[in-house]
Simulated scan of single mutants.
Amino acid sequence: MTVHGRQLLVDRVLVLGRKPAHVADELGMSRQCVYRWVRRCQDEGAAGLVDRSSRPHRCPCRTAPEVEAAVVALRVSSHRPSPKSAPRTDPEVSTPTRRPQPRSSCNPVIFVETDFFDTGTV
């Protein structure tokens, strides 16, 4: 929902005096969501209706900056292409795959037209 849509939602509840449950039903959202936008607008004003980042405020298990820098330096210095992007030098060494059979070795299917109106003819 856009910021304008959220403002209309809040106006329906606060200005027009509509019940949040009815507004939620009209807009296809939960009552909890309507109450959340109304509360944010009351607490923060129009700034409360703007999209917020979902990024966490802190990350207690984050890798230490020194270790992160060492890993990045190691990756840059010993860059090797991934197995998917590396060119194949010996097709016999690569993983065997099932290859489709050529059409000439397949058994052809013969379709027979049948005339249901004239019995006995094919």
Results as ranks from 00 to 15, higher is better:
V10M: 05
D11A: 15
D11L: 08
D11K: 14
D11C: 09
D11G: 12
D11W: 05
R12N: 05
V13H: 01
V13R: 02
V13T: 03
V15T: 14
V15E: 11
L16E: 13
G17Q: 01
G17A: 02
G17H: 01
R18G: 03
R18D: 13
A21C: 06
H22T: 09
A24Q: 07
A24S: 04
A24M: 03
A24C: 04
D25F: 09
E26L: 08
L27P: 03
G28M: 06
G28A: 04
G28E: 03
M29W: 02
M29N: 02
S30W: 03
S30Y: 02
R31Q: 09
R31F: 01
Q32F: 03
Q32H: 11
C33Y: 12
C33W: 15
V34Y: 12
Y35H: 14
R36Y: 08
W37P: 01
R39Q: 13
R39G: 09
R39K: 13
C41S: 15
C41W: 12
C41T: 08
Q42E: 13
Q42I: 07
Q42A: 11
D43C: 12
D43F: 09
E44H: 09
G45C: 10
G45V: 06
A46G: 10
A46K: 13
G48H: 06
G48T: 06
G48D: 03
L49W: 02
V50I: 07
V50R: 12
D51K: 02
D51G: 01
D51V: 04
S53F: 03
S53P: 03
S53T: 13
S54A: 07
S54F: 05
H57Q: 14
R58L: 10
P60H: 00
C61W: 03
C61S: 09
R62G: 00
R62W: 00
T63K: 00
T63Y: 00
P65A: 06
E66C: 05
V67P: 00
V67A: 08
V67Y: 01
V67F: 02
V67S: 00
A69C: 06
A70P: 01
A70T: 02
V71L: 13
V71N: 02
V72Y: 05
V72Q: 10
V72P: 00
V72H: 07
A73G: 05
A73E: 11
L74F: 06
L74P: 00
S77F: 06
S77T: 11
S77I: 04
S78N: 14
H79K: 11
R80I: 11
S82R: 11
K84W: 08
A86L: 07
A86G: 02
P87N: 04
R88T: 14
R88H: 09
T89V: 13
D90K: 07
D90E: 10
P91G: 09
P91D: 14
P91N: 10
P91C: 12
E92V: 11
E92Q: 13
V93D: 12
V93H: 11
